[in-house]
Amino acid sequence: MQKNISLSINGNKISTTKSKTIVEAAEDNGIYIPTLCFLKGKLDHSNCRICTVKVDGYHKPACSTLVADNMDVITNSDELEELRKYIIELLFSTGNHICAVCQKSGDCELQALAYKYKLLFSRFEHLYPNKGIDTTSSDKIIMDKSRCILCQRCIQAIKDKDGNPFFVLQGRSNALEVVFDKEMNDIFTQEDAIEAVKQCPVGCILSKESAAFETPIGRRQFDKTEIGNKEV
């Protein structure tokens, strides 16, 4: 691979290729930048902004900013941690994230980020939305829409062979939501359903097939291992 870009991340000089985003370049060099809406290989929409880093003194989303020569990137500082904590608190207070009754608990990326940044409570008022649970659109998945953080990973990742997404956005502004296109239910395979559950960073998309709460507490993905694969 041709390495034609040289930049600095947290003071360390690294080399990478031109078409990469900061998140990808950092990952290649073993530097973790937290992400929620980021999907590898796709130029992201920067929906969640959890990956905000400082590029040459300016805040920029690392998932959609392409690397450039002589770029100076700071991925971690007290200011950035505080900003990320605010975003996590906002996401927790705008959805119904009651971990005790969520089967994604322990494998949830939003929860894992809250653990990483030692979130004790949200400084924002909880909205307790009631967006409903969609159990009928698909015979393979259910969607608890009050948990959706609108990351749109499912829209980008799960598509049929012609490239049409199974999940689509519906509504505008506060009523904006991700829905399953029920007209595509016939061609929505079990593999697609498993991938959708895997891609959802929270407990919004859940499988009808697999049993819930199968993995005991202590053996789930983030019970002992911090997100970003740092052993604790």
């Binding site: 927790f92 119904n96 009651i98 005790a100 009754v101 909880h126 939305p129 009631n130």
Partner: peptide, 10 residues
């Protein structure tokens, strides 16, 4: 944050 009882909030 209300927890399980707050599931009635909506």
């Amino acid at each position: 944050m209300g927890g399980v009882p707050s599931m009635r909030n909506g």
